[in-house]
């Protein structure tokens, strides 16, 4: 009986057109329609509109002037955009490598640790906090007379680095992002690693594999798929970075956050809402399109780099 056996292939059932299938097909559009309408109106159409706007010069009030690829040319020549792209790529690559390395180390350390769930929860929590908070907190902790420097002084280190100087800010921002993101990725990787049966480790140990070899030949291949999904998540989230830069080190407005720290999201926001000067919506849209292309390119590169034979248990 096809009706009661869930093992029957769905396709076959659809072909046979049982009453349940007919019902499902009648309800399909009424069910999907509303969500799809919102999605199309607020997501798909805006992407197309951004691409179109990026070809014009527009202040949002007057008439739009055709510029062709002129806005993209302006971006190429704009120092602020260079900083924005460089910082975004640094967050993506340097921050990404650091985050995943630390996440794996934490995962290994957390295995068989007493209080593992509690520790994991605490490390996870920062990803629920608005990054504005970390920007402000970092400004305090690392300020010239802040607690970090005072502690270093107490330890007898007088030559404290200028943490919040413009040259150091991008690195500080990346470090803070890594700090706040590792808990999240540790949790995901931990869930994958927990699925690996212990007998594989025991077998590897019997064969004389050391800790690194066990990691390299058991843990890594068996969690590879999850890691590659995480890498895609990381790519998207690092191109979005905005809040943490906005107030990092005590800046207060977008214009007062030094351009050396900008990310592509900051550049888009500042071009569209510059406060006192004329909005450049076309330029903002062009920068936005570039950031979307960045996501696409990086995801393609990652997928290619991380493609492996699927290892299944």
């Amino acid at each position: 009986m096809a009706v009661t056996s869930t093992a029957a292939p769905r396709r076959a059932r659809a072909a046979r057109g049982g009453p349940l299938e007919r019902q499902a097909s009648r309800l399909f559009w009424p069910f999907v329609g509303p969500a799809l309408a919102f999605y199309a109106l607020l997501f798909l159409a805006p992407i197309a509109y951004a691409a179109w706007t990026s070809l014009y010069k527009w202040d949002g009030m007057g008439a739009m002037q055709w510029r062709g690829l002129g806005n993209y040319q302006t971006l190429l020549d704009d120092q602020a955009f260079h900083y924005a792209v460089t910082n975004t790529v640094k967050i993506l690559v340097v921050g990404g490598v650091a985050t995943f390395a630390i996440s794996f180390l934490l995962t290994l350390a957390l295995r068989e640790m007493a209080g593992k769930m509690f520790a994991r929860s605490v490390l996870f929590f920062p990803c629920l906090v608005n990054a504005l908070v970390f920007g402000i907190a970092a400004g305090f902790l690392f300020g010239p007379t802040g607690p970090v420097n005072k502690m270093l002084n107490l330890l007898g280190i007088d030559a404290v680095p200028k943490w919040l100087s413009i040259d150091n800010l991008p690195a500080m921002i990346i470090a803070t992002i890594v700090w706040t993101a590792t808990g999240y990725y540790t949790t995901i990787i931990m869930a994958a690693v927990d699925q690996i049966p212990t007998y594989l480790y025991e077998a590897a140990e019997l064969e004389g594999a050391n800790a690194w070899q066990r990691f390299r030949h058991v843990t890594l291949p068996l969690s590879w798929e999850v890691v590659s999904v995480c890498a895609v998540l990381w790519t998207v989230s690092s191109v979005k970075v905005f809040e943490i830069v906005l107030l990092f080190g005590g800046g207060a407005t977008v214009s007062s956050a030094p351009i050396q720290t900008w990310t592509t999201a900051m550049y888009v926001y500042y071009s569209a809402f510059p406060g006192s000067s004329v909005p450049k919506l076309g330029l903002a849209a062009a920068a936005a399109v570039v950031s979307l292309i960045m996501v696409g390119v990086f995801v393609l590169i990652l997928r290619r780099m991380m493609r492996r034979e699927r290892v299944s248990l």
């Binding site: 799809l36 805006p46 992407i47 951004a50 706007t53 191109v239 979005k240 999201a265 996501v295």
Partner: peptide, 25 residues
């Protein structure tokens, strides 16, 4: 359609900023 929805996960918010602002205005 499932794929189309999932692709939205890869779109950073700033891409929608100008269009949504103009549209809402």
């Amino acid at each position: 359609l499932t794929m189309t929805f999932a692709l939205g996960l890869g779109v950073p918010g700033q891409v929608l900023l100008v269009p949504l602002f103009v549209g809402l205005a």
